[in-house]
């Protein structure tokens, strides 16, 4: 399985992105993760804001 999931580095020049590309979808997870994961933080922050707003409105 190892040689299927992890491919040896074969490109002309070494680079960080080329290195990440050796693992199974590791490059994609890295890039997508940076883009999508912080949205959870935004989500909870906004949830807190909306709850606070609702409480203030209720009083």
């Amino acid at each position: 399985m190892y040689h299927v999931l992890f491919q040896p580095f074969t490109d002309v020049n070494w680079s960080f992105f080329g290195w990440l590309n050796e693992g199974p979808l590791t490059l994609s997870f890295f890039l997508h993760g940076l883009i999508v994961l912080p949205m959870f933080f935004i989500y909870f922050q906004e949830k807190k804001r909306l709850k606070n707003k609702q409480e203030n409105d209720g009083e």
């Binding site: 883009i35 949205m39 935004i42 906004e46 909306l50 409480e55």
Partner: peptide
């Protein structure tokens, strides 16, 4: 004090901030 649930998924501000984040990070990458 009301205990009604809030909907973040239909909140414009959440999507606006997400759009700004996604665009910015994609551009930096």
């Amino acid at each position: 004090m009301s205990k009604r649930k809030v909907s973040v998924w239909t909140d414009n501000r959440f999507w606006q901030r997400s759009a700004a984040w996604v665009t910015g990070v994609a551009a930096v990458l």
